[in-house]
Design a protein around this nucleic acid. Structure first.
Lengths: 205, 205
DNA sequence: TCGTGGATTTACCAAATGGTAAAAATTTCT
DNA sequence: AGAAATTTTTACCATTTGGTAAATCCACGA
């Protein structure tokens, strides 16, 4: 069995597991957990359904694996917020990193959004263990900056929520955004300028 | 047959149809379209499955009915934005109406978010017919205000996206928000102050 | 080259699910 | 009350879906 043992995975194992995860990311992000079928994932990965179940314990295992892997990438832009930098620029850079992430990894954004939307039934532990401590740490950092008068007084938690909401919106609500904007236009270029201006105004003076 | 004819619906029809729609709203908003089952909806509505199919043509019919009814309510806060009012106060009031909506109708917000997340497969026509014209109209209004120097220059479209994103976030990502905030705290009270301050700063000077 | 263990396919299955037909029950109208 | 129309239940059905058992295939090291 590929899982459970301590053996290092073979070439074939690495190739197939990542093919499955990539296919699953497509399917889960488009149709949600229940809307995705193993047959769809299998066909998109170019493998048979039983072959997929040779590599993963089941549908839920694939989904959880995907979410766990995603979590690290997802948190990275926030991790990079540097306590020693300039507060305004650090936060504005964070906004841009988060927006770039929505642009480059929209499938991941939608996978995550779908899971949270349904009450985070499969990722809650991960949220408590990874997201919460990081969130608290960065809220404390921003509070410290405010106490030093390097930022205007505001609620760090709702600031972060606003950053998350505005950046992820472009990936999660892409179908609505592209319907409302001119065709052929790149939403992200304008969003980048808009969000920079908005949060800059919020964070200065 | 209850549908298709022109007869006015009976007491029983109104009661049962609305019981079904309320139950369906619970189930669809919690589990998404594919994750919801007719049996769940039936049991939550206190009716049998075939009885539900007596009132609606099928699962999709229930879902579309729900989304169509929702659309009107959903658009209402934006409709109320008054061209003759003060630009800043009109937009700030809109933010508060939208936030109140997320607080009062979180199920509806999540139903809508789930549909958009999956590419709006069943509500796209409605978006084109109802949302798009209203969006364009209000964008033109804000542009006019800017041209009259009553608002600072900004992209009306992305302003509206930011309002949608930040307000709906509290309903759509409720499980994440409540996990990150202190227990027992009301997120909406603080969100209201935060968003008012943020958008006020953006819109003044 | 041949055996061995990992990889893949074939052939299934049980449960869940959306939906239907028709009988039975109930309400409504005269 | 009794006929007619509406509403609800009972008994199904076909398909989909997650998952399994076992046979077969195949890569690779000795």
């Amino acid at each position: 069995m590929p899982d459970g043992s301590v053996k290092k995975p073979s070439r074939i194992q690495r190739r197939n597991r990542s093919a499955i995860l990539d296919a699953a990311l497509n399917v889960f992000s488009r149709h949600g957990y229940r809307g995705a079928t193993l047959d769809q994932i299998a066909s998109e990965a170019g493998l048979s359904k039983p072959n997929i179940l040779y590599y993963f314990d089941g549908k839920e295992d694939i989904h959880v694996t995907l979410l766990s892997q995603l979590m690290e990438t997802w948190l990275d832009p926030l991790v990079e917020m540097n306590p020693d930098g300039d507060p305004v620029e650090e936060i504005l850079d964070y906004v841009q990193r988060k927006l770039a992430m929505a642009k480059e990894l929209p499938r991941e954004s939608r996978l995550f959004a779908g899971e949270i939307l349904q009450g985070a039934p499969r990722i809650e532990p991960e949220l408590k263990n990874s997201l919460k401590p990081l969130f608290d740490e960065k809220c404390a950092l921003i509070s410290a900056w405010i106490a030093q008068d390097r930022l205007p007084p505001l609620d760090p938690r709702h600031l972060i929520f606003s950053i998350w909401a505005t950046t992820q919106h472009y990936a999660d609500f892409e179908s609505q955004v592209s319907l409302l904007l001119f065709e052929g236009e790149d939403p992200y270029a304008n969003a980048s300028a808009h969000l920079d201006a908005m949060f800059r105004k919020l964070l200065t003076r």
